[in-house]
């Protein structure tokens, strides 16, 4: 492998990172929104969301990416590859994130709410100042864990022809006829990315435990 190949690999890593990063950023907020709507228990909407979460958790990302990319044009929606990949990954990760956020909601102590209301806070102020900061610390380990799962699932976007860190190995070996070195190098890059996330998760856990004490 020469410098050119490494450059291609880094480009692939960048593709993987920015697509997953966008999906993660939207997915975390989307998940919070879903959890909030579910906590409101609106009759019909609630069942619909349960169905969505159940389906999204059971569908493999590969299948979902293919489904979205191939069937969107039949509904008259024109999506390019990157958008389809981001939408699919976002919808996938949002379902998992919604469950994480919901667990944080359900385990939130009632005393704090009563205390805040007694101090004259409106429920909106209470949510923003008291509840959300604590929920973020307590659900961060789970969210970071879900992020590393999403990165591990991200090679699925290769199936619609995006040249991500996995797919780029094919492209390099098509020139060099030596598939082993680029695959090992890509594995090394994945290891680097995911170990950073695992490290972050350990740090987040330490912080969440301190809060719990």
């Amino acid at each position: 492998m020469n410098g050119q190949a490494w450059l291609l690999l880094l480009e692939g890593a960048w593709t993987t990172l920015w697509i997953s990063g966008t999906a993660i950023a939207i997915g975390v907020i989307f998940g919070l929104g879903i959890a909030l709507v579910r906590m409101a228990r609106i009759p019909f909407v609630d069942q619909l969301l349960v169905l969505y979460i159940s389906l999204a958790r059971a569908t493999p990302l590969v299948t979902f990416v293919l489904f979205l990319f191939l069937s969107a044009p039949t509904f008259g929606i024109n999506m390019n590859r990157n958008t389809a990949a981001i939408v699919a990954m976002t919808l996938n990760t949002a379902a998992f994130n919604a469950e994480i956020w919901r667990a944080a909601f359900l385990s939130f102590s009632r005393e704090q709410k009563e205390a805040a209301l007694a101090c004259g806070m409106t429920s909106r102020v209470f949510f923003r100042r008291i509840m959300l900061p604590q929920m973020i610390s307590s659900s961060l380990p789970g969210l970071v864990n879900e992020m590393s799962f999403l990165i591990k699932g991200s090679p699925a976007i290769a199936v619609i022809g995006i040249v991500d860190l996995t797919r780029v190995t094919n492209r390099i070996s098509a020139v060099t006829y030596e598939p082993l070195p680029p695959i090992l190098a890509a594995a090394l890059l994945y290891m680097l990315i995911i170990s950073i996330l695992l490290k972050l998760q350990a740090m987040a856990e330490k912080k969440a435990n301190r809060l719990a004490m």
Binding site: K152, P155, T166, T169, P179, I183, L184, Y190, L198
Partner: peptide, 22 residues
């Protein structure tokens, strides 16, 4: 620990596309 930091597809690639070189 190594497996925990790898995506599944990379392992499949390694076995299917990588090993024939050996």
């Amino acid at each position: 620990n190594l497996m925990r930091t790898l995506p599944f597809l990379i392992l499949a690639y390694l076995l299917y596309y990588g090993l024939p070189q050996l």
